[in-house]
Write a protein that binds this DNA or RNA. Structure first.
Lengths: 336, 336
DNA sequence: CTGTTAGCGCTTTCAA
DNA sequence: TTGAAAGCGCTAACAG
């Protein structure tokens, strides 16, 4: 049979072709056949036709009518960042379980692009959005849409942000990591840290301080603050460090995988390989990191927990008029 | 001024509030003010109002009318897989440059979920979709929509697939990798390979054969085929290998990062650390892989090139009625 | 079980 | 420059 590539079919056409009413077709398509006691024969007729012709309901029309898109938005700084990729993956899982889809945009850590992404998502009528922001989000941007769309912030606790937050316990994770490294290195420990622009980095520094009981003389000398959160910065910090002290500490921790990567590369350059007795602490992890002989302690974030919690807040919030600025803090765990 | 959180505004309301016509508002909103010689004063009035009230055009209504959503879809097996994350990131970049957004879904390598994801995307009226499939996609699924939406397959060249393909040159990449390892190991080389269900893996095996001039006795003994593409499989292959031969070859290559990861972990277990004189070959790469002392040769895929090419084919194809089944093969490069 | 109606917010067309 | 009208495909409501 010559399978002409016909155009897609509307509910009305299905009704015409199967000889039943539009209402009946819609009832069958939306799985309400039982509830409205559509005869089995009729239902089968419609279902067979629908299957044969790959009939799909038009979501644009549906959204327009229902003021609801069954879609949620995600804005993250970088899609290639493994943490955000995992977050997105879990969020997409939540969506699928609930028959929703996920629209994703990235800001590249640029407030302008972030704002643009948010507007695009809003214009597309997302029912909710999850944002890992790179600025304190302006409530005005969302104000006219807040009745229809929920907003949840993740990962970064900008002060004064007017929306609920779901984030890892960066501070306590850092405190525990620092404590372990202190114990195992006899306090011969250095923290290579990116410039603390991001709330998450700031909290890690606080956790570092906490581990020293806040006594400034104890922690101040053990932290090195660099520039942007990039490998080159980690490398630079290590180079400076070696020039200055001439030798490595027993333990070294880095504020992010980026910094760690640069630091380790620089060590390989300087020593030919990573000195095996260096104890390493870091945030987040990659599978291959376990391959070097060194002892590595990693703070692991619970992306699944973050995603599930954010999603739950989103669905709970929808239709709730006033947004209570809740804070869900998700614990981290350790790799070793 | 008490910033009441008013509801979002329609073009009609903007027209009423600013005292101009609907048509004029639309012209301003769509940046056609110049072309239709709207007076500057009028335009400013409208723009000021729009900015103040965060007016956004309703895409659901627009899509319904225009039969076009300015949205494209992406279906991948796993969002956490770094290769697909990079692909998505670059695709999102292409979209942003063209004022589009990206709807993403994952199949978890399950044909049923893939089909479901495709239907969801189609129902949402995407203007095109990029699929990294886990089966030969059925043309029937798309047939009624082909006038409106372009379909491009990436990464996996299933035989008989009825859509254009954009993929890396897996075969030639594998051939060159194998050749290098042969040269540097005096042919003392082993290929640990996942069960060749995926076209990409099959092509890598072909490339491996190519490097031996296809002489079966030469390559057959140097390949070990395992099960699923998972770390545990790589570990199992190494364990079996060591039991069987008692020692490692000079060079070892793996069909994917997954397999490599498991293999290396197993080696660390068996030997306490990765034997330093083992030459390693692999496909794809992670930053931390460079940290072990071993010589590592990696085949690097050009995700940016794949994304750009796929996107270009998509935009070229839209409105082109008949889909020519083109094949764009993107070269790989090497890390070392 | 079925038919009809109105309308979601936008764009296009045509006239003024 | 502006106004009016029709219609994209769907849903909800209600009368039959």
């Amino acid at each position: 049979m010559g399978t002409m590539e016909s155009s897609f079919k509307t509910i009305e056409e299905v009704a015409a072709s199967t000889g039943v009413s539009i209402t009946t077709v819609r009832l069958v398509l939306n799985g309400q056949a039982e509830r409205y006691r559509i005869s089995v024969a009729t239902r089968k007729r419609v279902e067979a036709y629908v299957e044969e012709h790959e009939v799909l309901i038009n979501h644009a029309a549906r959204s327009l009518k229902l003021q609801r898109s069954d879609t949620i938005g995600l804005v993250v700084p970088h899609l290639e960042n493994a943490f955000f990729a995992r977050l997105m993956s879990h969020l997409e899982g939540c969506c699928r379980e609930h028959g929703l889809m996920l629209l994703t945009a990235s800001s590249h850590e640029d407030p302008g692009q972030e704002t643009h992404a948010i507007r695009s998502l809003l214009a597309r009528g997302v029912d909710g959005m999850v944002i890992a922001p790179c600025q304190t989000p302006a409530r005005a941007l969302f104000a006219p849409y807040l009745k229809r769309v929920g907003v949840i912030l993740v990962d970064r606790a900008y002060a004064g942000a007017p929306f609920p937050l779901v984030a890892s316990n960066h501070r306590e994770g850092a405190r525990q990591l620092t404590q372990r490294l202190r114990e195992q290195s006899g306090d011969d420990l250095l923290f290579l840290c990116a410039k603390p622009r991001l709330p998450s980095i700031r909290e890690r520094i606080q956790g570092f301080q906490d581990a020293f009981g806040g006594v400034e003389s104890d922690w101040r000398s053990r932290i090195r603050i660099g520039g942007a959160d990039l490998p080159a910065m980690g490398a630079g910090l290590v180079r400076a460090l070696l020039q200055e002290r001439g030798h490595l500490p027993r333990a070294m921790m880095c504020s992010s995988l980026m910094v760690l990567e640069g630091a380790l590369e620089q060590l390989k350059t300087e020593y030919g390989q990573i000195p095996q007795d260096l104890l390493i602490g870091n945030f987040d992890t990659e599978p291959m990191l376990g391959l070097i002989p060194n002892r590595v302690v990693s703070v692991i974030q619970d992306e699944a927990g973050l995603a599930r919690t954010a999603f739950a807040r989103l669905t709970a919030q929808s239709g709730a008029e006033s947004t209570r600025v809740t804070r869900d803090i998700i614990p981290c765990h350790f790799s070793a």
